[in-house]
Every structure is written in C-alpha cells, then in structure tokens.
C-alpha cells in the first residue's frame, strides 16, 4: 500500500512538473514579458535592466526552478490586464466557482440517482421512456445552449429567476458566500441546473445500468427467496451496491464540472474563475492563463489520486494484480 502511494505521488508530481513547464513556457516565450511591462518604446538599456531584475538573463532551468518555487507558494505574478496579483484575483473568484460546482453536483446526484432507480425498476413505464429521451437530449445539447434556453424561459418569458450574477453575497471572513441570502440562492438555480444537467444524465444512465446489473445477481434472488418485501430488496440490498460505482464516477466528474463551469459562468456572467480564465484568453493575459492551467491540473491530479487510492482500499483484487505485476 505504501509503495503504491509513493509511486502514485511521484507520478502526480511528474504530471504537475510537466504542466508547470508548459505554463512556464507560456509565461516566458509567448509574448515578451519585458515588452508587456515597459511598452514598445523603452530603450535597450531599460529592457536589459528589467530583464536582469526579473531574472530573465539566467539560464532556462534556473528560471524554471524559480517559477516552480513561487508557484508552489501560490505566486504567479501580476495579471497583465488588471495589474493585481493573480493569487488575489483567484482568492476572490474561488468561492463563486466552488459554490456553483457544489450546487451542480448536488443537483446531478439528487435528481439523477432517483431517476435512474425508477428507470431500472419500471423498465416499461412511459415515464422511463421520457427520462431516456431527456437524457439523450441532455447529452447532445451543448452546455451553453441549455443555459440560453433556461434564461429565455425562466428569466425572460416567465421572469421568475435572475439571469446573471450571483445576487447578494455575505462575507464569511475571506469567503464570500451567496448561499445565505434569498437573492443569492435564486441566482444559483439556473446556473447550477445548466452545469449539472450533463452530469445528471450521465449519473441517471449509469445508475439505471448498474441497478439492472445488480438486480440480476444471486444475492438479490436469495433476498427475494427469504421473503423480503420489494422495498427492502430494492432499497436496502440493491441500491447500496449500485451506489459504489455511481459515487466513484460522480467523484471523477467533479473535475469536469469545474472545467465546464467556464462555459456556464460565461453564459450567466457568474463572477467565478472560469469567467476570469475566458477573459484572460481573450485579452492574452498570460499570467492568469498559466496560473489557471496549473490550478486546474492540480484539481484533476488530486481527484485522480484520491479515486485511485479509494479503489485500492475498496477492491482487494486490484492489490493482488499489483502484487502479481511486481
């Protein structure tokens, strides 16, 4: 177990170093940072001095080491567009994105699992057919189009819910939350549904497939033979075993939710990190792009690492395979 952990940590660190290298190359070679800072008409002497100040005259590997050292401490320099530290910008934007991602994940699980269970238990019901058609549409529609349609119906036509922004927020220390005010909660509904719909259809299909699989196994037949009620068989025996893979996939999807938040945040002008990133792409704000790249890579690496560890802890067969491989 320890050897497995160490190997995975080394792999994760290698991935992060490579992503860091890409981010650094972006930083260093795509557009000249000295020109960015001094403007086009600085004298050669000024440029040379600036280069020396920034450490740009040092060898490549030393510069990279310095970049990594600062990145580990969360320092990515100044945003070229807003002239403020990237770390401060991220700290301001992080709560919005995390709250949105969390709400979307809760929506996907709370709606997707019951729908999947129903579709598995009542295979021939018309409602099941409706669910399946909805899931097909949910998979095919681009995220931004779902957002636009929801805005058109619930914000423009019915005027029930706001279509942009976070509503009122309350500051809890450094964390500004929209979950404690009525307008904040109302503003969260449409973006959360938009972001969670794809994951919801995925979870529904997976729950249905797993449930159908589990219902065919021996222990379910045995539970029936013992004379347990349908209710006990379905929800106490079958559902529990269905949920293991569903939760795993949901965990793996958490990273995608944060990535797809870029689109949802643009549609709803949600002041999170995705919106910050898209603006940095449009305005060639390299430090913000590089930092976002590193941060999202970290999120994915951590999620994959945790899921691997959990698999390893839950499934003894994997341990055997690893032992045999060695």
């Amino acid at each position: 177990m320890l050897a497995f952990c160490i190997r995975r940590i080394v792999q994760a660190a290698a991935v992060m170093l490579v992503v860091g290298l890409i981010a650094f190359a972006l930083f260093r070679f795509v557009g000249d940072p000295v020109v960015f800072m001094l403007g086009q008409d600085a004298t050669p002497e000024d440029r040379a001095r600036m280069s020396a100040d920034l450490g740009l005259d040092q060898p490549f590997h030393l510069q990279y080491a310095r970049f990594v050292g600062r990145a580990v401490q969360g320092e990515f320099g100044l945003s070229l567009r807003q002239l403020r530290p990237v770390s401060t910008l991220f700290r301001e934007r992080l709560p919005a994105t995390l709250e949105l991602a969390l709400a979307a994940a809760v929506f996907a699980l709370a709606v997707g699992i019951p729908m999947g269970v129903y579709a598995a238990l009542r295979r021939r019901s018309w409602l099941t057919q409706v669910f399946l058609v909805v899931s097909l549409i949910g998979v095919s529609l681009p995220t931004f189009l779902i957002g636009i349609l929801l805005i058109l119906v619930f914000a423009v036509q019915l005027n029930w819910l706001p279509s942009f922004g976070r509503g009122e927020t309350v500051a809890l220390g450094a964390w500004s939350t929209g979950l404690l005010t009525a307008s904040g909660l109302k503003a969260l509904i449409l973006p959360a549904i938009t972001l969670g719909l794809f994951q919801m259809t995925l979870i529904m299909r997976l729950t249905r497939a797993e449930m159908l699989e589990v219902l065919r196994t021996e222990y379910i037949r045995f539970a029936r033979a013992r004379g347990l009620t349908d209710r006990a068989v379905y929800f106490r025996h079958a559902l529990r075993n269905t949920l293991v893979p569903v939760i795993t996939v949901a965990g793996l999807q958490l990273g995608s939710i944060i990535a797809f938040a870029i689109i949802t945040e643009t549609v709803f002008q949600w002041p999170g990190m995705g919106l910050l990133f898209i603006q940095s792409v449009m305005f060639a704000d390299v430090p913000v792009m590089a930092a976002y790249l590193c941060l999202i890579a970290l999120v994915f690496v951590v999620i994959n690492f945790v899921v691997d560890l959990l698999y390893h802890a839950v499934d003894p067969r994997l341990r055997l395979e690893n032992a045999a491989a060695r």
Partner: peptide
C-alpha cells in the same frame, strides 16, 4: 485524457 477535451481546445 484525464482533462476534458474542451479545456485542451481552449488552452
């Protein structure tokens, strides 16, 4: 493969 395609395309 561990990153969503849209993210790679955006980058």
């Amino acid at each position: 493969l561990s990153f969503p395609a849209i993210l790679i395309a955006l980058l």
